[in-house]
Nucleic acid binder design. Structure first.
Length: 550
DNA sequence: CGCATTTGACCAGCGC
DNA sequence: GCGCTGGTCAAATGCG
């Protein structure tokens, strides 16, 4: 049972098959197949993150190079150096490599090999000396490479941080333009986020929605207090706890019986949208044998119910990565197709997330923001939401559906239509740590021009093709990102499912999504029609990319 | 023993 | 008002 950031965060829920308790035994036996292996997994692609260093099946294993000597960000040289060194130590002649000076020595030796067979005495001594010399050179080179790698790693980390900060600044700026009164709240969030920038990417990217920042802050405070009450645990507090739960926005149930106001109620827009924000949900449909997708967060199961119309029980989970985190999720198998796992997220994390969790968090945050932005953009929420769904998946109406008729605004990301899903495939390495494969970037598919580190078995948002070509391509000028400029490589069918992780790991994803949404909403929204022309210039991510939803 | 899960009970909202 | 349903709680249980 592993408790760190990374893949094994959901260890116990994995082994606990809630379908086996009440569901049929048939499904139980089915889902018990390699649950660990078949978990959805989200990548850890944050450069320089701890997870990146935990690569296990790297070439360093084979060559017995100490891990600290082989950097996963390293270029080919250092690895070759390592191999050469080992081969040297084993008496093998090192092959010609990229190291010129090494080659020189080897070539000399090779050139003289014929002679060395003739006069053994002198040449063997010289060879020894030469070999030692080479070895020393290799050591020096290795050190130099390591230093260089470290430098590059630092730079990469720095660039990442800067990029995130810049993105947040941009969102903040646009948010302030749209809603100046929330400026101070936004600033609060910014300062909070800064605290965690170095180690962990912050989830609480500002909510660009009107009063979004306020909402986030409010939810955080409210939930901390309410949850503290809830966790106080003394029996005499039961009544108080119930009351507190009712007062807390998060405590509202998320079912059709919930107290949450409906979208098109007659309430003023502020209240209704605020409530809608609280209750906005993102439902992810994906194929998986595992009882729960691995989204990088830690969850604690707090309930299970048989839902009407579905023989499979519905499990209720609460985020336990931080005390008082209001995020909850429901996990349920689809009644029609029990290989489909439906995970519904609600709430905003009130804590920083590890990179592994950023993937799903970004996805759901983008979807939720998009949904809520759409619902607020106009009174005709349904229309805009449909447009937003098309914004996510312009060429497929079934990939993302937004329900405005539901008690809560819900966006459903349907990830089950992969032509060749890889969710049942074995991971390339047995370890549960998600390790990028910097050694073979050329073999990796790209989404939005970003190499896919295919460590994810998540079946994917399937945004790669449509979004990459039509949507993102359209938005590239709006959301400048170096990687977005790269030509998109045709996505491999069996790696499409990893697209989501890669997409959502890219901080530009939500910005790009927001830009796309903004342009659409701008056209549909009567009040923002004047902004339509601006969308191509200045809408870059402002309208959406709030990571305040999980 | 501590922690997570299980599971029955409770509560609130909705429909009839 | 009553029953149904969804969501949550918390004691009981299981596991490492």
């Amino acid at each position: 049972m592993e408790k760190g950031w990374g893949l094994a965060l959901e260890s116990d829920p994995l082994t606990t098959d809630f379908f086996s308790t009440k569901a049929t035994s048939a499904t139980g036996s089915f889902f018990r197949l390699n649950q660990q292996r078949d978990m959805f997994q989200f990548p850890v692609s944050l450069a320089g993150s701890r997870d990146d260093r935990r690569g296990t099946s790297s070439p360093s294993d084979d060559t017995r190079i100490p891990v600290d000597e082989v950097d996963f960000f390293s270029d080919k040289k250092s690895r070759i150096v390592g191999e050469d060194r080992v081969k040297k130590e084993h008496g093998e002649p090192a092959p010609s490599s990229d190291l010129d000076h090494v080659n020189t020595g080897l070539l000399l030796r090779t050139a003289g090999s014929d002679q060395s067979t003739v006069d053994d005495g002198v040449s063997s001594e010289m060879e020894d000396r030469r070999a030692k010399n080479e070895l020393a050179q290799l050591h020096v080179e290795l050190k130099r490479m390591n230093a260089e790698n470290q430098k590059l790693k630092d730079m990469l980390s720095h660039v990442n941080n800067n990029y995130t900060a810049l993105q947040m600044h941009l969102v903040t700026f646009m948010q302030q333009q749209r809603n100046p009164e929330t400026e101070h709240q936004v600033q609060e969030l910014k300062s909070e986020d800064k605290k965690h920038d170095e180690e962990i990417m912050p989830l609480k990217i500002l909510d660009p929605r009107p009063s979004g920042g306020a909402e986030t802050a409010e939810m955080m405070s409210t939930h901390s207090s309410s949850d503290e009450r809830t966790r106080s645990g003394t029996p005499q507090n039961n009544v108080e706890k119930r009351i507190g739960r009712e007062e807390s926005p998060e405590s509202e149930s998320w079912g059709p019986n919930s107290k949450a106001p409906k979208l098109n109620s007659g309430k003023p827009i502020d209240q209704s949208t605020e409530a809608a924000m609280r209750k906005a949900r993102v439902s992810v449909r994906a194929r998986s044998e595992a009882p729960m997708i691995t989204d990088g967060c830690q969850w604690r199961k707090y309930g299970q119910k048989m839902a009407k119309g579905n023989p499979c029980p519905r499990a209720y989970y609460r985020c336990t990565m931080a005390v008082g985190c209001p995020v909850r999720k429901q996990v349920q198998r689809c009644a029609d197709d029990r290989t489909i796992l439906i995970t519904t997220y609600e709430g905003n994390h009130n804590h920083p997330l590890p990179p592994a969790a950023m993937a799903m968090a970004s996805t759901t945050a983008a979807a939720a923001s998009m949904l809520l932005s759409g619902s607020m953009a106009s009174a005709d929420g349904i229309m805009n939401q449909n447009l937003l769904a098309k914004a996510i998946l312009p060429n497929s109406s079934t990939m993302a559906t937004i329900s405005a008729s539901a008690p809560f605004p819900t966006v459903t990301l349907d990830l089950t239509h992969s032509p060749n899903p890889l969710q049942f495939r074995s991971p390339p390495q047995p370890t549960q740590f998600q390790v990028p494969f910097p050694c073979q970037p050329q073999n990796l598919p790209q989404v939005f021009g970003q190499p896919l580190y295919n460590q994810s078995k998540f079946s994917g948002l399937q945004l790669s093709q449509e979004m990459g070509s039509s949507q993102l391509g359209h938005q590239q000028h709006q959301v400048p990102h170096p990687q977005l400029q790269q030509p998109q490589q045709p996505s491999l069918a069996d790696t499409v499912s990893a697209a989501t992780a890669a997409i959502t790991n890219d901080p530009s994803f939500t910005a790009a999504l927001a830009a796309a949404i903004t342009s659409i909403i701008g056209g549909a929204h009567p009040n923002s029609s004047s902004n339509t022309s601006n969308n191509n210039n200045s809408s870059n991510g402002n309208n959406n990319p709030s990571h305040n939803r999980q």
